[in-house]
Amino acid sequence: MAKAETLLYLDGVSVSFDGFKALNNLSFLIGRNEMRAIIGPNGAGKTTMMDVITGKTRPDEGELRFDGKIDLTAHDEAEIAGFGIGRKFQKPTVFENQSVRDNLMLALKALRGPFATLFHRDDDAERSRIDTLLATIRLTARRDDLAGDLSHGQKQWLEIGMLLAQDPELLLIDEPAAGMTDAETAATADLLREISKTHSVVVVEHDMAFVRALGVKVTVLHEGSVLAEGSLDHVSNDRRVIDVYLGR
């Protein structure tokens, strides 16, 4: 990857919950169209980092910038989503009482105001976009079923499909392979590699085979800050990384 322009910039970000520092002076950069894997033990602050980027949690201190000038700390979840940051949650969160198709339809990039949606009509372009997404996430046959009836792995895929439907510039993906079979995990890695050709992606994952399959730069988090950064081979030979994470 050429030295790309920075899309996401975190500098000295700290968050504490009742005195406990979930993020501690965390700093890193994500380039445009870069894919980054984030690993680290449970409780390292990976999910909290995504909460901070997407406006769910406000940092106590530090700087968070997107696309050069946008100060993310000054905006709420809906605005940040509007800037082009999409998110998949650690626990798959889809709209269980609505069809797979409607889940994608709700996520599709479109005007988000109540009057725009009240008078919204689906057209051929929208239908074919949804068909393409359904094929990508292999849920074409389940399009009319309730999202709540999908298997855990399928919900993960639906949520990735919803992310794609939003067409954000930056995708934050929290533990996508959890609950998937080996075949599904491999397919997910393929899908993410495909997505990263045109999007920036941050993936949090524990599954080392999956991270290896992604073949991208890895950032290791520990106790709320960056412990090591580099290729997977580089970080897995790092003494401290082995001590706190890989060695256990």
Partner: peptide, 14 residues
């Protein structure tokens, strides 16, 4: 309905 079932998810969709 999305708000009813998963309010915070709906926010993250924008």
């Amino acid at each position: 309905i999305a708000v009813r079932d998963a309010e915070s998810r709906t926010r993250f969709l924008g």
